[in-house]
């Protein structure tokens, strides 16, 4: 009798696990499918693209698409530019967001609620609402008329890296509100006793931050850095808006079809071929961040789970 029940339970458990795994396999495939599709298209020779019997595995395997896309995107140069910009921006963002999040979480000051509300406002109001004005502001950049006094005209900062760095350094860049919120959430949960003990032992404000708070916050800071780096890497919106002519990978990828047309003129490449090349370009853009993700995958997920987000 007991044996029968045990067997029944075992069968039920086995079946649910099996169904769950099939479901999970399907969902994983669904998520990965566009990427796999792009990879297979990027390895096809041009004639394979028109062959309707070929679905996934290329008949004429070639890496020619990669060398074309590599040339069209000016990959080596734009990779270096993108890397340095993304690096600088994410380091600045993490530092400024950490400091601001720490201040909001651990210090009481007048109008604290107001500034926190402004932070939430910054998260909620889409930056696209005021992006045109922001662009004009950076095009005619001036602080209290100082530059006009010195040089006779305002500075045009669009096209340089300065606007993006300024936004990053002042917690107003891409998704900065999210990072500040995460840091605030994290620092809020550290018991006050630790801080008080540090004060009694003679730690100053900065010493407390650097030797008591920061070591524990390193995991969160590094995951915020990863997020920031990856999102900056693929961001096309702010970079087109504020640093127009810069040689960045996302901008290169966005314009790859038109570059291909002018590269191959007078022959006009077919739409399918353009798509294949842009799929190849997408793979080239994604390869670095796929590697980053595979190496640091746990960090991405942990940061969000560790700072149990509560309102």
């Amino acid at each position: 009798m007991i044996n029968k029940a045990a067997i029944k339970r075992k069968i039920t458990k086995f079946t649910t696990t099996l169904v769950l795994m099939i479901l999970m396999f399907g969902l994983c495939f669904l998520i990965l499918q566009p990427l796999l599709n792009k990879i297979s298209v990027s390895l096809m020779a041009e004639r394979d693209l028109y062959d309707s019997t070929i679905v996934a595995v290329p008949k004429h395997f070639t890496t020619e698409n990669y060398s074309i896309a590599y040339q069209l995107m000016d990959y080596t140069n734009s990779f270096m530019t993108t890397f340095s910009v993304a690096m600088a921006v994410s380091v600045l963002q993490v530092c400024s967001c950490l400091v601001v999040g720490y201040g909001i979480a651990r210090y009481d000051f007048p109008l604290k609620k107001f500034w926190f509300a402004m932070l939430i406002l910054m998260i909620v109001v889409p930056q696209q609402t005021y992006s045109a004005a922001l662009q004009l502001w950076f095009r005619n950049f001036d602080i209290f008329g100082i530059f006009r006094l010195l040089t006779g005209s305002t500075l045009d900062l669009t096209g340089t890296v300065a606007p993006v760095l300024m936004l990053a350094g002042t917690c107003t860049g891409l998704k900065c509100g999210l990072y500040v919120y995460l840091f605030r959430q994290y620092f809020r949960n550290i018991p006050k006793d630790i801080e008080e003990a540090a004060y009694i032992d003679g730690c100053g404000t900065l010493r407390t931050l650097f030797s008591i708070m920061l070591p524990d916050a390193i995991p969160l800071a590094s995951s915020c850095f990863l997020f920031s780096f990856v999102w900056q890497w693929t961001d096309n919106y702010f970079t087109t808006l504020l640093m127009k002519s810069a040689n960045l990978l996302p901008a290169r990828l966005n314009g790859i079809a038109s570059t291909l047309i002018s590269y191959m003129s007078p022959v006009r490449p077919s739409l399918t071929y353009q798509n294949a090349i842009s799929a190849t370009g997408t793979i080239l853009l994604l390869v670095p961040i796929i590697i980053v993700y595979l190496v640091a995958q746990k960090k991405f997920v942990q940061s969000l789970s560790a700072t149990a987000v509560k309102m």
Binding site: I104, R106, F109, P110, C171, T172
Partner: peptide, 20 residues
């Protein structure tokens, strides 16, 4: 502590006023 707190969030205040 209020002054120190304001110093900590000053980047955000600056950014908020100037760029938002």
């Amino acid at each position: 502590r209020a002054i120190v707190g304001y110093l900590f969030i000053s980047p955000f205040i600056l950014g908020f006023l100037l760029f938002i």
